[in-house]
Design a protein around this nucleic acid. Sequence first.
DNA 1: CGGTATCCGCAAAGATACTG
DNA 2: CAGTATCTTTGCGGATACCG
Lengths: 211, 211
Amino acid sequence: MISERTYNQYCGVARALDLIGERWALLVVRELALGPKRFTDLRQGLPGVATNVLSLRLRQLERNGVVTRRLLPPPAPAQVYELTDLGRQLVPIMLSLGRWAASTMGERSPEQAIRGEWLALALKAFFDAEAAAGLSATIALDLDGAPFTLCLEEGRLDVAPGRDGPADLTISTDTELLLQFLAGAPVTVRAEGDRELLNRLPELFPLGRSA
Amino acid sequence: MISERTYNQYCGVARALDLIGERWALLVVRELALGPKRFTDLRQGLPGVATNVLSLRLRQLERNGVVTRRLLPPPAPAQVYELTDLGRQLVPIMLSLGRWAASTMGERSPEQAIRGEWLALALKAFFDAEAAAGLSATIALDLDGAPFTLCLEEGRLDVAPGRDGPADLTISTDTELLLQFLAGAPVTVRAEGDRELLNRLPELFPLGRSA
DNA sequence: CGGTATCCGCAAAGATACTG
DNA sequence: CAGTATCTTTGCGGATACCG
């Protein structure tokens, strides 16, 4: 199984597929896009993946220079996987791909899995920098109990897992409801703080205009 | 064979992989990026693909709304495949992917296939619009006998197969030599016309800075 | 917890022959 | 030319067993 399957073409696109074109590979990158994760956490975000396949992909991505394996310092000596520089350069492209395909997605069907983290990533993908020009704010977001922090600054957006400092706006909701809210549906979202900011969110994250 | 394999995730990235993540699929898009092609021509550009796999991919891409099948008008009643609007929207993302992976490609190894059309696409991918600001020109390019026309206009670049009208600069060379030239190597390229323009090409198409 | 190893059944990919 | 049909091979999905 040491053989790397390759298209054997001297072409950037083919090379990209050699690097991250195997099944699950790009989804591993997606899972690591917001920060390092452990094997078991990766599994959680990749429903249906077989453990041996995930293990194999991680080794391949490591060999391809997209992912690194790292040991956390002694206090909690766990092993985590994280993106390399090359892997991080891939993230915006992956987000573009997601935005592209999102235009073909309708409503969620019951058998489709959904996770707060994927929506957090979608926020990054759909963020409209122009609409956010001159806006600075910190938003604490709780999606199905998973905390994220959004930092808006000078038209830039940073999304990180976890809570980080005081927030101008705190939202606690579930993934589907937030989706509907951003799409412009007349739903009410549990929120505290700057409600003016809350009402601007659909404009900053125009997920709705995709489907 | 009607069963579509899917990740079953309500996530844009996973959806993108459902659409164009199967083996060979994105390379089919690459082959169609510069214009419609017939089945046999697609095969030429996809060395190693099995005819049944190609046939299957085309049907899937068609069902996924990325590719259409069209019959050319009577004079030459051939069937061609071409990108849909959705497929064309994918092209710049695919080019980004190619540019990303190109940074990990070294010299070409002997067993790697190479085609003029791939390089023509790479020109699109690496084109530096800022460096070309205010430049208008038409370049006729012959790569291993395959003709392409590059149109520079207002910082935009259009690449099309075939010859199209008079050119300010005409280049006849092989793929590898042009690659070396653009990378800044001291090679001589067969060219006629605006040699000033010829010398600016490495700056307009900085392929060299990738590897 | 964080994996690796193995087996099994299936579906996709590869190779090639063949046909409208 | 434009595929379909057939056969073989390989990768994937799923389960489970095992080890540091």
